[in-house]
Amino acid sequence: MGKKLGPKIAVWKFASCDGCQLSLLDCEDELLSLAAVIRIAYFPEATSAELAPPYDISLVEGSITTAHDSARIQQVRESSQLLVAMGACATAGGIQALRNFSHVEEFAAKVYAHPEYLEHRSIDLAHSPPALRAAGDPLCGQDRLSGAPGILNRATAIAEHVPVDYELRGCPINKRQLLEVLNALLNGRRPEIPTHSLCLECKLQGVSCVMVSHGIPCLGPVTQAGCGALCPAYQRGCYGCFGPSESPNTAALSEALLQIGWQRADVMRAFRSFNAAAAAFRQAGEAYAR
C-alpha cells in the first residue's frame, strides 16, 4: 500500500529580506518531521527542485512593490488552495511601505547613482492574468505607476491584492507560529494564533513590564502577541514588529509615551517602522506627524 502523499507547499518571495523564509529553515528540530508529512513543491531559497502547480499551501513572503509583482501574486493565488501571508511585509507592506508616505522618485534618486536603470520594462498587459487584463489595469486598485516605470507608488500587503487565508505577523515571523499554522492545516484544525496584546505574553512568561518598572517606552499594549515577548524579556520596549493588536488604543498609549518622556516625533517614528502601513499604526503615525 503506497503512503499518502503529503500536501504540496510552495514558498514565494516578493519585496522582502528573506528573513521569514529562513524561519522555515530555522525549524531545525522539526524540519525532518515536517519534511516527512509535506512536499516542498517550490522553495528556491532551499531547493532548486520544483513541482508543477497547483499547490495546497502557498507561503508568501514580501509586499507588492512593482507592477510585475502585482501580476505575479494573482498567479500565486490562482495556483494555490490556501494562501498564508507571512511577515510584516506580506501582512502590512513592511519597512518598504515607508515610501507610501513620501515619493518613490526621491528615494530612488538618493539611493541609486542611476535610478533610470531601475525596472524599465513597460507593463505588458498581454502577459497579465486574465482577471487583470479584463480590468485593463495591471496595478490593482488605486495604485498608478510611479515616476520610475514599473515601480509602484505604494508597497502594499498581499491582502490588498488577493484573498488571504491566514496571516502570520512579525519581522520576522515566529517559527513556532509558522509550525502551528502548518500543523493546524495538516490536521484540519484551527490554528492557535492569538490576536490580543503582547502584554499577556509578558505576563504569561513572568517578564516584568519595562514600561512600568523602568519607564522604557513600549508598543506592547497595542501590538499583537506572538513573538514570545522577545524585547521585554531583554528589558527593551516592544518595537511593534507584530503589528496592531485586535483592538489597539494607539491614542491612549501615545499619550502615555509622551508622559514618560517621548516627543511627538518619537511617537510618529515608533509607529512608522515595520508596520507603518497597517491601518492603526498608519493613523497613529499620521496623528503625530502633524
Binding site: 496584546s197 502584554c199 505576563k203 504569561l204 499594549p221 497595542v222 483592538s247 489597539p248 488604543n249 491614542a251
Partner: peptide, 12 residues
C-alpha cells in the same frame, strides 16, 4: 478612552 485593553490588570 484611557484603557489600552492590554489585560495587564487581570494578569497581575
Amino acid at each position: 478612552e484611557r484603557c489600552l485593553g492590554c489585560a495587564n490588570c487581570t494578569m497581575v
